[in-house]
Design a protein around this nucleic acid. Structure first.
Length: 422
RNA sequence: GGAGGGGUGCCCGAGCGGUCGAAGGGGCCGGUUUUGAAAACCGGUAGAGGUUUCGGCCUCUCGCGGGUUCGAAUCCCGCCCCCUCCGCCA
């Protein structure tokens, strides 16, 4: 979240961010509540100071002059009742303010281009080129079913629409890619973690999924737990409420997890195959850094994600998201989109975001460098990368005329030496 | 799930209705001493918020939330977490 101080000092910046991000947060209501809150607080604190002094006096008088003490007690009781009434009002104001504050989106970085939606995103670079085929490239659903490595009907049977079953070398390929990407991340200095897939409300609020996106999440109502939509949530929250030492930063984590998304509101989009599913695997990269380091760390994180695609020989482009396409919590974000020949379009496989101190402030994540007061960390994360779409790109890119799939060399050792799926 | 014990500052640990934002010890930082170091001694060592004539002043925080009281780390209630035992279980 943004600090009240920041909103107070930059109301226009915040209003513009709200509009550009297609959000509905009420900045003026926040400003009004804030000033009302502070006025009330001052009033309360003056009375409390008086009561504290009076109560101390009572303690003293109890030994010398019981009668005086009783009189003072009575006055302090009145004062206390007044304080209680004011505090009740104050709590109401505070509660409304806190609720609104959690719904204010992050302000886009100055370097983020203007634009209302995906069409406003700017391609900053691309790698490789679209492969040529001497035949009509097939979609992964055709390839996968014929090869017996994807089973859509049975996935639907056991779970419903939007779920996928990998089988045989398909399942093996998923596992191989996960291991491969984790190994790459480890070499780049990320510490691997394995974390819970169910988290509490506080964690979901910490990274910014709540309160706004509750209906996008799977929730266990009996236990107040949520299925994670991304490992970003448990991993970033690992250090929630902590004050880290600056010497220990940056922290770099990589994590494989399943991700669960209800995809509410996206009905009708990408209904075929496994482009959009309710459950998928992903290797996530997360960084916790000092504030001055976050722009450079963001570039490095994006490069780490891109290297996965380069090493697999997959054509991709990197898009700098415009203000209108930026998510709630992000200040700046690169989407990496991989080319899927069978689809004839690019698919987003990674979103690399810099949240600055937006998440850290929500979760109370700070660092201390010895000199200055504790500051909020900057947090970043990016997929490195999401599995089903990576598998789609791989299958469709490396398909042969006979419908078999020739595996890129780097992944073969992870496949037990298998060179081709046929 | 049941029974019991417990959560205090960077760490250990005392306090169990007022003089407690909190004894004592350790750590860390600074100083004295020393050729240097160690030891010894002295001093310092939380965060959030409000207000300010920028010298301060004030409020809140002893797991979290509520209650009792003139006054709560201390008493009461609820919740969370940790430990021990029992039950269940991959």
């Amino acid at each position: 979240m943004l600090s009240l101080e920041f909103i107070r000092e930059n109301p226009d910046l915040v209003r513009r961010a709200v509009v550009d991000k297609h959000d509905a947060a009420d900045v003026d209501r926040i400003l009004a509540l804030d000033s009302a809150r502070r006025a009330k607080l001052t009033e309360i604190e003056v009375l409390k100071a008086e009561r504290n002094a009076g109560s101390k006096e009572v303690g003293r008088l109890m030994k010398e002059n019981r009668e005086e003490a009783e009189k003072l007690k009575l006055r302090m009781k009145e004062l206390g009742e007044k304080v209680a009434a004011l505090e009740k009002e104050f709590a109401g104001t505070q509660e409304e303010l806190d609720g609104l504050l959690l719904r204010v989106p992050n302000v886009p970085d100055e370097t983020v281009p203007a634009g209302a939606g995906a069409e406003g995103n700017v391609e900053v670079r691309s790698w490789g080129k679209k492969p040529e085929f001497g035949f009509e490239p097939k979609a992964h659903w055709d390839l996968g079913e014929k090869l017996g490595i994807l089973d859509f009907p049975r996935a639907t049977k056991i779970s419903g629409h939007g779920f996928i079953v990998f089988k045989g070398l398909g399942a093996r390929l998923e596992r191989a890619l996960i291991a491969y990407m984790l190994d790459m991340a480890a070499k780049a200095g990320y510490t691997e973690v394995a974390v819970p897939y169910l988290v509490n409300r506080s964690s979901m609020t910490g990274t910014g999924q709540l309160p706004k996106l509750e209906e996008d999440m799977y929730r266990l109502k009996d236990d107040e737990l949520f299925l994670i939509p991304t490992a970003e949530v448990p991993v970033t929250n690992l250090h929630a409420g902590e004050t880290l030492r600056a010497e220990g930063l940056p922290l770099k984590y990589c994590c494989h997890s399943a991700c669960f998304r209800r995809e509410a509101g996206s009905y009708g989009k990408d209904t075929r195959g496994m482009i959009r599913v309710h459950q998928f695997d992903k290797v996530e990269l997360v960084k916790i850094v000092p504030e001055e380091a976050s722009p450079a760390e963001h570039e490095a994180l994006t490069a780490d994600a891109e290297r996965v695609l380069q090493s697999l020989g997959l054509h991709y482009r990197t898009m700098l998201l415009c203000r209108g396409d930026l998510s709630f919590a992000a200040a700046r974000c690169y989407d990496i989109e991989v080319w899927a020949p069978g689809q004839g379009r690019f698919l987003e496989v990674s979103s690399c975001s810099n949240f600055r101190d937006f998440q850290a402030r929500r979760m109370g994540l700070k660092y201390k460098d010895g000199q200055s007061k504790p500051k909020f960390c900057h947090t970043l994360n990016g997929s490195g990368t999401a599995l089903p779409r990576l598998v789609i790109a791989l299958m469709e890119t490396y398909q042969q005329a006979d419908g078999s799939i020739l595996l890129p060399e780097v992944i073969r050792p992870y496949m037990g030496g298998v060179e081709k799926i046929d």
